[in-house]
Nucleic acid binder design. Structure first.
Lengths: 125, 125
DNA sequence: AATTTAATGCAACAAAGTTGCTTTAACAAA
DNA sequence: TTTGTTAAAGCAACTTTGTTGCATTAAATT
């Protein structure tokens, strides 16, 4: 994957965020006119493919992207993600890994475990 | 909720299906012209609200609906759903309930646990 | 049968994401 | 450093999924 201005800026945006971001949210953060809307979608696809970022489908169906925080050795995204219904923010709950057991005749390629509710910050206020 | 032709037909469609169905899939099953597209969306919203069906957001972001098979005593949908990437079918894996533990300062309202891969049927062929 | 209002139909809209095709710009090789 | 190759970007048009406002219809209550 070529090192382009769009890719660098998008990856930086995701890595500097402590929440998972959608294409729309990334576009809002990027300097106006840095790149086309479609380019963001295509860069995100490539970042996922090269395993530089995690892809999460939120409970409302919107796809979000997050940095691979604890993936230095291995690309893992088997942790839970939390969607706050108040502040509408999706965060990785990295230390909580759910356990489950499917029959062995299922081939598992991907997990997407979402918990939705109210986050600690919003419960406070 | 009033007992209308659309509601009865949509609920019957969901209950007779052994897979979770999207609005588009339900529309394709219903007799042509039985009701408007928008009506399906609105009936589905009401069925979810009155806890007659489960709502699942698939890993591709499309919302699907399934019958409450083992909810005779209590409305629970804490089980895993499986998305087959070959036949593109979503099924409830009712007997597999995942365990996880969030910090107590999270208020949990809803779960959406998806596993995606290849189902036993598609692995056979 | 009359009344109330939930439910439906229709058109228009909106958000999220995709596709085709041309142009631009990484970057490798000469 | 220039040239050639092709990945990546831009742009317009499109698709899918889902929503909203408002007028009309039809459950269900009296």
């Amino acid at each position: 994957m070529r090192k382009t201005i769009a890719k660098e800026a998008i990856l930086k945006t995701i890595n500097e965020s402590d929440t998972a971001l959608s294409q729309a949210e990334i576009q809002a953060i990027l300097p106006d006119g840095l790149c086309n809307r479609v380019t963001i979608y295509r860069v995100l696809d490539r970042l996922v493919e090269e395993k530089s970022v995690h892809q999460i489908t939120n409970i409302d169906g919107v796809v979000k992207y997050a940095n691979c925080h604890s993936c230095s050795t291995e690309h893992k995204h088997d942790h839970i993600h939390f969607n706050c219904e108040k502040c509408n923010v999706v965060t990785c709950v990295e230390d909580v890994e759910p356990t489950f057991k499917l029959p062995s005749n299922y081939q598992i390629n991907q997990l997407n475990f979402m918990v939705s509710g109210v986050c600690p910050d919003c419960l406070d206020s």
